[in-house]
Amino acid sequence: TRRLHGQRRSYRTADLAKLIYDQALTPSEVLKRWRGEVDEEEGDNEGSDDEETFFKKSSAEKADEHYEDRAIPILDYDQLEAKWSVDDNIESLRRRFTTATLLNEGKS
């Protein structure tokens, strides 16, 4: 398998199994770590002025404020159109349809 970020491999299923129940992380942090998008030692220790940090909202709080549950994901349809206009992408998706010829299964 591929190695990302030098030492740490990311996106491993075993990692998710561990991270998912780590209550110190928010679900979005879990996913970022799983995908290897953040370093392990990332913290929010930037504030210096006491009064300012007192009133500052934590990043989790900010995210929750605007959060509403959604069933349909927010998608960038221009990007999707570009993605599904490429023949290679359509052809690789074809394996998920019954119209695919099973003879090519071994080759791809």
């Binding site: 999707l80 998706l93 998920r96």
Partner: peptide
Amino acid sequence: KQCAYQLLEIIS
């Protein structure tokens, strides 16, 4: 168009 692309994305 959007619905068809969304469906392809979900299938993928």
